[in-house]
Simulated assay, not measured.
Amino acid sequence: MARSGGRGGSTVRINGMARLRGRLEDLPDEIKEALKKGVRESAEAVRDDTARTVPVDTSGRDSRHLKDTVDIRYDEDGLIAQVGWFGQTDFYAVFVEYGTRRQAAQPSLHPALERERGKYRARLSEEVRRVLR
């Protein structure tokens, strides 16, 4: 898993088997699908955790916007997932996540990533083991 800043907001990038990208074509399709499933499950776990913990503004504005718009984008045929806010109206997610001079940071995306980090390898390994049985 790697961190990445996005243009429209704040995102994290989950890499599936980045070191083996060159060898990936040689793997059987069943293994590739197992890896994609592991990446998808980890990305969904980060997205759902982030949505549960992102602060909700109680000032009367659209207070659930960041909670409702945290999303996943997949690249590399599903082996790379980016989790975060991608819309132009989500630009302020980076200010919530990292804080400003006048507002303390209220991170939700990066803590969710850190909670998933320890499970990621185990998730991928389990999916591959399941195929090899």
Results as ranks from 00 to 15, higher is better:
Asp48Ile: 04
Ala51Thr: 13
Asp68Cys: 03
Arg47Val: 02
Glu76Pro: 02
Trp85Ala: 02
Tyr98Glu: 07
Ala2Asn: 10
Arg47Pro: 00
Arg130Met: 07
Val96Leu: 04
Val94Asp: 00
His110Ala: 04
Pro107Asn: 05
Ala112Asp: 02
Thr53Met: 10
Asp26Phe: 05
Thr100Gly: 01
Lys67Cys: 03
Arg117Lys: 14
Ala34Ser: 05
Asp71Glu: 14
Val131His: 09
Gly16Asn: 00
Thr50Phe: 12
Met17His: 06
Ser59Lys: 12
Leu113Asp: 00
Arg61Phe: 09
Gly38Glu: 05
Val96Phe: 03
Gly38Leu: 06
Arg7Lys: 13
Glu127Tyr: 07
Leu35Gln: 08
Ala81Ile: 09
Leu109Gln: 01
Arg102Phe: 15
Thr50Arg: 02
Arg21Phe: 05
Phe91His: 11
Gly5Ala: 12
Gln103Asp: 13
Asp68Arg: 13
Arg101Glu: 07
Arg52Ala: 15
Asp90Pro: 07
Arg64Phe: 13
Phe91Met: 11
Thr69Trp: 04
Ile80Glu: 04
Lys37Ser: 15
Ser108Trp: 00
Lys119Gln: 11
Arg61Asn: 13
Met1Phe: 03
Lys119Asn: 14
Glu97Gln: 08
Arg21Cys: 03
Glu41Asp: 12
Gly9Met: 00
Glu114Gln: 11
Ser59Pro: 08
Gly78Leu: 04
Ala18Leu: 12
Ser125Pro: 06
Lys119Tyr: 07
Leu109Pro: 01
Arg52Trp: 09
Asp57Trp: 15
Arg40Pro: 02
Asp75Cys: 03
Asp75Asn: 11
Gly6Glu: 14
Asp90Glu: 15
Trp85Glu: 02
Gly38Thr: 07
Gly22Cys: 06
Leu35His: 10
Asp62Ala: 09
Met17Phe: 11
Glu25Phe: 15
Arg40Trp: 04
Asp75Gly: 06
Arg115Thr: 08
Leu132Glu: 12
Ile31Met: 12
Ala93Arg: 01
Arg73His: 14
Ile80His: 01
Leu132Gln: 13
Thr50Gly: 07
Leu27Ile: 06
Thr58Lys: 15
Gln82His: 11
Arg115Tyr: 08
Leu20Cys: 08
Gly38Ser: 11
Ser42Lys: 01
Val128Ala: 14
Gly60Leu: 10
Thr100Tyr: 01
Asp62Trp: 12
Leu109Gly: 01
Gln88Asn: 13
Tyr120Arg: 04
Ala81Met: 13
Leu79Arg: 03
Lys36Val: 04
Ala18Phe: 15
Leu27Trp: 14
Gln88Ala: 11
Arg52Asp: 15
Asp26Lys: 10
Glu114Ile: 09
Arg7Glu: 13
Arg52Val: 09
Glu97Phe: 01
Ala104Thr: 08
Asp26Arg: 08
Gly60Asn: 08
